[in-house]
Amino acid sequence: MSTHLVSMTVNGIERHARVEPRKTLADFLRDDCRLTGTHLGCEHGVCGACTVMIDGRATRSCLVFAVQTEGGRVTTVEGLAPDGELNPVQAAFEAEHGLQCGFCTPGFVVSATALLERNPSPTDDEIREGLSGNLCRCTGYQGILRAVHRAAQSMGARQS
């Protein structure tokens, strides 16, 4: 089995590993980087639990092979709050009961973060569309919707 040496920046830290080409970025993050915040649900691009940022864009890490990300810059949910505190999106999910079991939450937090970067004050419809690629099976989406609104408000207040 041929393997490839891959190098990429994950949450600001240079990571190297020798991997089979068929190893997805999600498995690379979980197995080789020990960053298990990125969750794997469906593993074929439907559920969104594995969403991470690659070079600043929210992406399904189960639909990208680690070798494709050679030289890239990856941010996982662990990298969104590097100082160990909740960032505004995470705090809003807690405050608005945007999570119950928490399995889908890393994907939602990354997608919501990407959404708010592009659109700092989204409408209900824009939030629904932005999060339509993430599935939650227990919390219900109303709390998540409220959480994104709250995060938008607190981030806007912080900037002004």
């Binding site: 068929r22 997805t24 074929h44 691009g45 189960c62 639909l63 990208v64 092979f65 070798v67 494709q68």
Partner: peptide
Amino acid sequence: VLAGGQSLVPMLNLRLARFEALVDIG
């Protein structure tokens, strides 16, 4: 050929397709 992979990789993950090699044009 592997381009963006958003159709091909699901098919590979589900083993609906398999290839001797992928040529990444990225």
